[in-house]
């Protein structure tokens, strides 16, 4: 078994108005940063998972996202996963 680290980004589905993102976008514009648009606010979740290989690790994380970490009715998920570097703190 190996330890993998997953980095999960949970964000509101594109079709849903992200009011936090909109407020932050307006704040950026009030700071005269006019070139910035489409601000989206999401959540970043990190976790370690013990698995025999990266595919199993990914499947486990996807299941966790579907069951608890995200709500598919309103949220999209992006998962990055890699073997945990040797010597990295547990």
């Amino acid at each position: 078994m190996k330890t993998y680290t997953a980095s999960i980004i949970v964000s509101l589905r594109r079709a849903i108005l992200d009011v936090q993102g909109k407020a932050v976008e307006n704040a950026l514009h009030s700071l005269h940063m006019q070139g910035m648009a489409n601000v989206r606010i999401g959540k970043h979740i990190e976790l370690d998972v013990l698995a025999p290989d990266i595919d199993t690790a990914r499947a486990t994380v996807e299941e966790a996202c579907a069951k608890l970490l995200a709500n598919p009715v309103m949220e999209d998920v992006h998962i990055d996963i890699a073997e945990k570097a040797a010597g990295a703190s547990a």
Binding site: L12, I16, L17, V19, Q20, A23, N71, V73, M74
Partner: peptide, 8 residues
């Protein structure tokens, strides 16, 4: 689902 109020 129930999400953040439009007016925040």
């Amino acid at each position: 689902a129930l999400i953040r109020n439009e007016g925040l």
